[in-house]
Design a protein around this nucleic acid. Structure first.
Lengths: 204, 204
DNA sequence: TAGCACATGTAATATGTTACATGATTGA
DNA sequence: TCAATCATGTAACATATTACATGTGCTA
């Protein structure tokens, strides 16, 4: 059902065509909040129109249909927003990959974490440029999707980067404790000597 | 396909039954990485066994089947981990809700953000306790899911909290600029004087 | 006048959800 | 012996993915 509300949310902000909504999804929602593809969006728009939650308010050139949210649609969106569930489903393939990295063994996991940290640095830098440019013209709408998403990235990305860097550090620390011998497959197969896992506080 | 690899990943760590895997999902993956339900896990396990990527290595009391990853399964998991796509799908209903909050209007959006900030504080505190307790016994495995997930939460949660707090601040700032008059529905319905919104580029 | 961006759709398949079904073992 | 937890499954339905189909309007 989330896709449905995502579309209602975008239309609450401004009437738009399926094509425009697809783009706004890509810009604002796809990355951190909700992924949807072109054809799924079109199908859901038709269903929403059938249900009277949105309506076609203009037809344009290439069969273009501009949709606007109806009063009922607006009401349904607000009702949904107001009753927040305690837990919600999360699916993030990227995070899954990071969590499973250990399966590659220490050395390779470390490598990948390093690559991840680096690429995240780059994305943060890009985002910062984008936000600097945006700020001048968009400051008037602090809740606009573009602003929200960009600001979110600016908080989220460094957090994940730090997490990955921490994980790397913990790997290194463990390697030292183990005596610093090289490893090719990391876990299951190797020495496994858990003799001296003593101190070294994580300092949380 | 992600579910498939999530299961392979968990089994790479340690052989387990469907029941145990369901629990490990809840503990380690459900919250930040990949959500899956009980019956989906069982179905996928059967498929994985059919495909020879995992195998039953023991049968227990109540029809319990302990699965272990096979060599082919291990190889497939590593292959998947090694070719990281540039982008991956993200679905997070919680984030979606935060992004759409504006539809409730400033006042209510502010309220919800405040509630969110508060509840996040609480969860961070809980997590910290949990990590402190865990540290002593689990430090030897820095890539264990429990550690990874907990540490991730400790980075991620404060970031989202700060983002939400920032959004609140920006709302307040805007209210001041507008002359500080009360608003009940914020955007669409109220004043609507678009006199003072500047250029407002769409931004990427 | 070719190529690109605009613009919407259908069909087959895969994945995920909801609801239900079944029964064994353990411990109070 | 009763309730809780362990343990696995099926079926109907909803949602999402992949691949394809179709054509318009703009502009270089």
């Amino acid at each position: 059902m989330s896709l449905r509300y995502a579309l209602l949310g975008l239309l609450e902000d401004e009437a738009a065509s399926g094509y425009e909504l697809t783009k706004r999804f890509e810009q604002a929602l796809n990355r951190y909040a909700w992924h949807a593809q072109q054809n799924q969006i079109y199908q859901e728009l038709n269903r929403l129109a059938d249900d009277g939650l949105i309506e076609v308010v203009a037809q344009g050139p290439r069969g273009r249909k501009t949709y606007a949210i109806t009063e009922r649609g607006s009401a349904e969106l607000r009702a949904w927003l107001r009753n927040t569930p305690e837990s919600a489903t999360v699916r993030n393939e990227f995070m899954l990959r990071l969590f499973l990295l250990f399966a590659l063994g220490r050395d390779e996991a470390r490598e990948q974490l390093a690559a991840y940290v680096e690429s995240t640095e780059r994305r943060i830098a890009e985002l910062r440029v984008l936000v600097d440019q945006m700020d001048d013209s968009k400051r008037d709408d602090p809740l606009a999707y573009g602003t929200l998403a960009a600001q979110f990235g600016l908080h989220f990305l460094p957090a994940v980067r730090d997490w990955a860097a921490d994980a790397m550090e913990r790997i290194d620390r463990q390697e030292d404790e183990d005596g610093g011998h090289g490893e090719d497959d990391g876990r299951a197969d190797s020495g496994d000597g858990d003799t001296e896992k003593g101190g070294a506080g994580t300092g949380g």
